Amino acid sequence: MENDGHRTVLWRLADTVRLQARSGRDVTGSWMDLAVAGMALPPGVVLDGEAVVVVDGKVSFEAAQSRAASSPARARQLAEEHPALLIVWDVLALPTGDVRARPYEQRRALILDVLAGLPSPSPIQAVSATDDVEVARVWYDRLVASGVEGVVAKLGSAPYRAGRSSSWKKVRHAETVDAEVVGFTGAAGRPRALAARLPDGRVALSQRLGARLAAQVAAALVGVAPAAARGRAAGGESFTVAEPGLLVEVLAGTTRHAVVTVTRVR
Rank of each mutant, 00 (worst) to 15 (best):
R202A: 15
A145T: 15
R76A: 13
V259I: 06
W168D: 02
A218L: 01
A174V: 10
V135A: 12
A116C: 10
S120R: 07
D178I: 00
A219G: 04
L41R: 01
A215K: 04
A73I: 02
V224W: 04
R67V: 06
E180C: 00
A187Q: 15
A196G: 10
L155S: 07
A93S: 15
V148Y: 02
D48S: 03
D26W: 06
A220H: 01
L86F: 03
A116T: 12
V181L: 04
V133K: 11
S128F: 09
L205E: 10
Q216S: 11
G147F: 00
K170M: 00
V27C: 15
G186T: 05
G97Q: 09
P159A: 14
A228N: 11
A258P: 01
S71R: 10
E134A: 11
G97I: 05
A63E: 07
P244A: 12
R172I: 10
T130Q: 03
V127W: 04
A126R: 05
E180K: 05
A252K: 10
R108D: 08
P103E: 13
R161A: 14
Q77S: 14
V241W: 01
R12W: 03
R100T: 12
A227R: 04
W168M: 02
G5P: 02
G231F: 04
S206D: 01
R202D: 14
P43T: 04
A63V: 07
D178P: 02
Q77D: 11
V52G: 07
T240E: 09
V135D: 05
G183C: 00
Q216V: 05
V53T: 14
H257D: 14
A21W: 09
L78E: 03
V203S: 13
L155T: 13
R266L: 13
A153H: 13
G38D: 14
L13E: 15
S166P: 08
R7Q: 06
A37R: 01
R100H: 09
E105S: 15
E105A: 15
V224P: 09
F239L: 11
W31M: 02
S71I: 13
L47S: 08
P72D: 08
L78R: 08
A179M: 08
V171Q: 10
Q125M: 09
L78I: 00
L194R: 02
E237A: 15
S166N: 12
L194C: 03
L221T: 04
G150K: 15
A211I: 09
Q20V: 11
H257F: 15
S157C: 07
A179Y: 04
W89K: 06
A242N: 08
S30F: 05
A51D: 07
P119L: 00
D200S: 06
L143H: 01
R107Q: 10
F239E: 06
I124V: 08
T176H: 07
